[in-house]
Computed example of a mutant assay.
Amino acid sequence: MGYANVQYTILYYQYRDLSFQSFPFIGHPLQTDWISLPILHSFTNGFFSGIFWNLLEFNATQTILKMATDLMVPLASVAHLTDTHDVGFVIMSSFGHAYRLLKLPEYLQIIITAASSLSTRYSSEVRCIRSWDSKEGFLVIIDNMMNLELLFEASYQTNNQTWHNLAWQHANRTMYEHFRPDNSTYHVVEYNETDGSVIRKYTAQGYADWSTWSRGQAWAVHGFTIAYRYTKYQPFLDKAIGAANYFLSHLPSSTDSITYWDFDAPHNSTIVYQPRDTSAAAIFASGLVELSQYITVEETKDYFLTNAKSIVDQLASPAYLILDNKDYILRAMIANGTQGPYPDKPYDLATVFGDYYLTQAVLRLSKL
């Protein structure tokens, strides 16, 4: 966490000099500058602030509070967006943290506004929240499970049962349509917007339509764990456990806990290179820590915690930590993230979301 503080404090001042008009997205460790995206154009833009909220909760100082707040304030306008499902990612990783820690009513109002915006993307025929706007059909991605936290939290704070119901319906439909019998996940499900029927199931960032994109599987574990946190609906917990067991059973080996970017990409070949995805590992580890706390069977709870700790330890090892590679100059924490699909999109890079969920995992482990 001290290393995260050092790296991201330097980044804070760099982006402050640019008036916080854009935030880091992905970066190549051998290069100085991150690839940045405008405030309103990425699901990742709340994570810069979110890293500082994680640091604040870990070891509070006035300096960290100021940086977290400065990076959060420009995101307020995201709460009004209705053309993206990512409003949940952005607002809950920034204002969601801030309200939980500080309980300021103006932060809650941002959460409420954002929930109202996100709810406009719900279809009663499909019983889901639209992910991507498309002329093809009503598209829902497994990542969208993470945005439900916004609706659940806003409902909890305001007693608005409608928002709770929308989130529950989305999770319930996703539980049946996005999962295969072995608890692996499809990335995208396309629905018929008129009658709610399924048109097709495929991938946009994975290896193949039949394969399991590892970050998507991590989103599923994390997302259904959050859904259970708010609903205590046993099938959501069971699905999170099933998805977690699938993830753990498909790691490279018993001593190698950092997954490849897709579980089914041919990484056993000595000829075909397949990159890892440290962001998937970090997201999964963080979700696994929370999931372990809802499990009453001690053996399973210990199994999940042991694996979460192992993943965090490996992410913080010389193999992945930017600090330990003398050739890396980017101000970030971990390398070897993959945007997907490989090789069409960038790979072997730092991701702000990988760094965010790693700090979240460390924070959660520190509280046990």
Rank of each mutant, 00 (worst) to 15 (best):
Y3E: 00
A4I: 03
L11F: 07
Y12M: 06
D17Q: 09
F23E: 06
H28W: 14
S36Q: 08
P38G: 05
P38T: 07
N54T: 02
M67V: 07
L75S: 04
T82I: 08
D83T: 12
G88R: 03
F89Q: 07
A98I: 02
Y99C: 15
L102E: 10
L102V: 15
P105I: 10
L108T: 10
L108C: 13
L118K: 00
S123L: 05
E125F: 04
V126D: 03
R130K: 11
D133C: 11
S134T: 04
E136P: 12
M145T: 13
M146D: 06
M146W: 09
L148I: 08
L148W: 09
S155E: 11
T158I: 03
W163Q: 08
W163T: 07
H164P: 14
H164E: 15
N165F: 10
T174N: 02
E177Q: 06
H178Q: 05
R180G: 10
R180Q: 08
P181Y: 03
N183W: 14
T203C: 00
T203M: 02
G206R: 08
Y207V: 05
G216R: 07
W219H: 13
T225R: 05
Y230T: 14
I241S: 14
I241V: 13
A243V: 07
A244R: 14
S249E: 06
S257G: 12
D262T: 04
P266S: 05
P266T: 03
S269M: 08
S269N: 08
V272F: 08
Y273W: 12
Q274V: 02
G287Q: 04
G287V: 06
K301T: 11
D302H: 13
Y303E: 06
T306K: 15
A308H: 07
S310E: 13
A316L: 14
A319Q: 05
L321C: 04
L321A: 03
I322L: 01
T338F: 00
P343A: 01
K345G: 03
A350L: 01
V352E: 00
L365F: 02
K367E: 13
